[in-house]
Design a protein around this nucleic acid. Sequence first.
DNA 1: AATATTTTCAACCGCCCTGGA
DNA 2: TTCCAGGGCGGTTGAAAATAT
Length: 332
Amino acid sequence: MNSRWTYSAERGKLKKGPWTFEEDLHLLRYIKLHGEGRWSALAKAAGLQRCGKSCRLRWVNYLRPDLKLGNITPEEERVIIELHALWGNRWSLIAERIPGRTDNEIKNYWRSHLKKKLQSAANYKRNDCTPLSLPIQSLEHPNPQHQTQLQVLPVNSTATSSASAATEDRPGKAINLQSPPPSSNISQGLTVTNRSIGNLTSDQDLRMEYINGAQQKPLSITSFATAHDLNQNSIQNQLAGIDPRILESDAMPSILYQLYSSAQDDATALQAFTASNSDVTVIPPDGFESDSCFDFGSDILLWNMCPIDPATHYGLQQPPFASTSLNANDRQ
DNA sequence: AATATTTTCAACCGCCCTGGA
DNA sequence: TTCCAGGGCGGTTGAAAATAT
């Protein structure tokens, strides 16, 4: 007997398999406007031929702007090992303690990296794992700069409700890892992290490969710093390093959206983008100062560079600016 | 360079829990 | 109380990429 999910998917002829760029854009745009939740209704409202569970999974594991992309750090790896020794395969619980990481990501990392590593360790025995008798922040790290990124604190009334509920059935083992306060010493730079678009030689190297018209590959950019930490020249340098074919491709709105989302500062990113790409011009409408368009940076570029017509797909009014174009001279 | 093998990870499956009717 | 739909979770799969031969 099929599960209700299978039944539901078959009844509605819902799509399965890898998400396309257009689907991602639909979902991103819809959640940006309406927020997340009520996934089944959201999937229909966003015009996606996907089940709600698929939409939720895509958002939670891949599109959410607060995701921390890139490799698991040594500090994070240590936390995973410690918490897995405590709680076993409670991946969602472990993920709650590592900001920006998903349960799926941690689960995959454990299976592909840590399990084998630990099992092969000569002195590793399942019951001999060092218990969390020491605060994680006290454990030594070969690189002092990586030290004290996470703190182990007792569960108290300030813990989130979900975290509290999750630990209540494990008396004596309740801990709460809190992310550190914003640091002015966060590592800088933008990194393209998806393996499908080629190897990167460094954080400064944003050379990417994108074959327009080929099967869509997910693209993502993550920022290890907030816009406050990034100076304009840094963003400008990163964007200037992007292959021009990317800037003119359908992938650009997604790249910019994620850049803006992580940078939390449309103005800076858009200013850098337009400064480094003379072919792209943002023209404010009558009555708007030229600088004011930066307040709507991501929406403007999403709207005007988006291969989907937002008015058709989302029932939205025209954006508050006349247009952007890859060739400003065309409109003169 | 070509092929085989291994690794990675996005996505799906099925089970369970919860809340509303 | 029972049923059902929605959502969350852990386990699993399989295609693509990376690595080894």
